[in-house]
């Protein structure tokens, strides 16, 4: 059974086509990696899949729920660890977790238990009553991950989850995720620039470039197809080695223009 179905997804911003007629499926319980260079359309695709952005054309279902027609049912089925910070700095670590637990209807007892378990897991339990604004970048990142795992959704989107984590925490997080994938049959949808990490953990990989999917299959299949020995080489062969300009959000575009003017 496919827990995620993406059919003919297109997203245009003015003349620019960020996602160009993309279709793919993810099976229930699969560990799926969605790779691509900067500006390839990864983030836009995830934003549409997670109902933050509406598509220009095409259709997505998550756990059988159309993300446009039944957004709340679709939202209930997934969790997400965002690439960018999304914590409330003026709340404590525990308050951020509790807030999330209430939004996702986790019963009180269970919520307390899981918050404690997860905060201990990311080693923030001792700091649970500190305001998030006092946290370092790595601590915030760990808290984001813990929060994304608080409710046990059927699908977890992980948008560059290990960005800015040290190798210890990273391996810790991967073990937890793989375990979740096995014991709860949670579907994991991952984007990352650590290609070797994806090769290591993912059942199946899709590579997107210029808004189109250029390859999809297991890491072995992609390597065989490109006659390369690592997924990283296959990735470079498929997407070329030139460096990309990221389109980014409106805010960062403005910032870039601002810096441009000054320099």
């Amino acid at each position: 059974m496919n827990i995620i179905e993406v059919n003919n997804l297109t997203k245009r911003f003015g003349d620019f086509t960020a996602v160009d007629d993309v279709s793919f499926n993810v099976a229930k319980g699969e560990f799926f990696a969605f790779l691509g260079p900067n500006g390839a359309g990864k983030s836009t695709t995830i934003e549409i899949m997670t109902t933050l952005l509406s598509p220009t054309a095409g259709q997505i279902t998550i756990d059988g729920h159309d993300t446009i027609k039944e957004p709340d049912a679709a939202r209930r089925a997934f969790g997400i660890v965002f690439q960018d910070p999304s914590l409330d700095d003026e709340l404590t670590a525990q308050e951020n977790m509790d807030f999330h637990g209430v939004l996702y209807d986790i019963p009180k007892e269970e919520r307390y238990q899981r918050v404690e378990q997860l905060l201990k897991f990311v080693e923030l339990w001792d700091r649970r009553n500190s305001l998030v604004k006092k946290f370092s970048g790595g601590m915030k990142r760990r808290l984001e991950i813990a929060r994304g795992l608080l409710h046990h959704p059927k699908v977890i989107f992980l948008d560059e989850p290990t960005l800015g984590l040290d190798p210890q925490t990273r391996s810790h997080v991967w073990i937890y995720l793989k375990n979740l994938n096995k014991t709860e049959n949670t579907t994991l949808f991952l984007t990352t620039h650590h290609i070797e990490e994806a090769e290591h953990v993912a059942d199946r990989v899709a590579i997107i470039d210029h808004g189109k999917i250029v390859a999809i299959g297991s890491a072995q299949e992609l390597k065989d197809k490109t006659k390369t020995t690592s997924l990283e080489e296959a990735f470079l062969l498929l997407t070329g080695s030139e460096i990309r300009e990221e389109r980014g959000s409106i805010a960062s575009q403005r910032m870039r223009m601002w810096h441009g003017k000054r320099s």
Binding site: T50, T51, L52, R76, L87, D89, L103, Y104, D105, A251
Partner: peptide
């Protein structure tokens, strides 16, 4: 701007 709105907007609310 600080991203917190996303956390609220993807929740089943």
């Amino acid at each position: 701007q600080f991203g917190f709105l996303k956390e609220v907007m993807v929740s089943p609310m």
